[in-house]
């Protein structure tokens, strides 16, 4: 029986050219896949915030004009080598580590890694202790410091729990790329490549096999799913 909901899901999947196909209803996420990003910072403008704005719209992050406590799932970090003067602008979001410290430290298991490598917060059992925020080397998580409104149906978020980039898990499950990737391709220079690192036929897997890529704080051994070129 196909209900209205399934129809909506199916129509969404057909509209966008999908890098991967939507998972069948009723099928769990599988460890056969490992979703990842490859970001070429040489294509990132210093002033460009297309990915950041797309994320805010997609996730319903309205903000309260309080920069110290407002949530940011992705941010542009401007880095400069003091020795050479070389500068880059790097989009930094949850790096979806294979060995995420936030998952290790979470007392209740709310901070979790899905089978396909996406790191999420199960806000149903998050108690708001913020230990994951202490543990994350990338400062990828935010704490909801006040009542939230204007939530998107696909991204529940509320006061007193921790949140962060979900790699747009709701879009991936429909066979669509994350909102930041789509927006960067449409409105900026297409610096972001999304795909399944485990699939040898995927563009991202072929590119990381062919070209030199780096990961932020690779020395920590967390094996992030987000890779960079140009830093």
């Amino acid at each position: 029986m196909i209900n209205r909901r399934h129809m909506i899901l199916a129509s969404g999947a057909m509209l966008v050219a999908a890098p991967a196909t939507a998972r069948q209803a009723g099928q769990p996420a599988s460890a056969a896949q490992r979703w990842g990003l490859l970001i070429d910072t040489s294509k990132c403008g210093v002033e460009c915030t297309v990915c950041v704005e797309a994320c805010k719209a997609e996730m319903g992050l309205s903000g309260h004009d309080r920069p110290r406590t407002d949530a940011q799932y992705v941010r542009k970090v401007n880095v400069r080598d003091p020795a050479t003067g070389a500068a880059h602008s790097v989009p930094v979001m949850c790096q979806h580590c294979a060995k995420p410290p936030c998952v290790d430290v979470c007392p209740t298991g709310a901070s979790m890694k899905r089978a396909d490598g996406i790191v999420l917060v199960d806000r149903h059992i998050c108690i708001g202790c913020r230990y994951c925020m202490m543990a994350c080397p990338y400062k990828a998580r935010s704490f909801a410091h006040e009542d939230q409104s204007g939530q998107q149906p696909h991204l529940p978020r509320g006061k007193g729990t921790v949140e962060g980039c979900t790699l747009c898990v709701h879009r991936i499950d429909e066979g669509k790329p994350p909102a930041c990737v789509e927006a960067c391709a449409a409105r900026a220079r297409g610096a972001m490549l999304f795909g399944d690192l485990n699939d040898p036929k995927s563009e991202i897997a072929q590119k990381v096999a062919r070209e030199a890529t780096t990961r932020i704080r690779a020395d920590l051994g967390l094996e992030p799913g987000v890779r960079y070129q140009g830093i």
Partner: peptide, 17 residues
């Protein structure tokens, strides 16, 4: 601050660096 890019100067809207 957390040092995401050791040896580099960093700045952002999220208080990096």
């Amino acid at each position: 601050p957390l040092d995401l890019f050791p040896g580099m100067e960093a700045s952002s809207t999220f208080a990096d660096g």
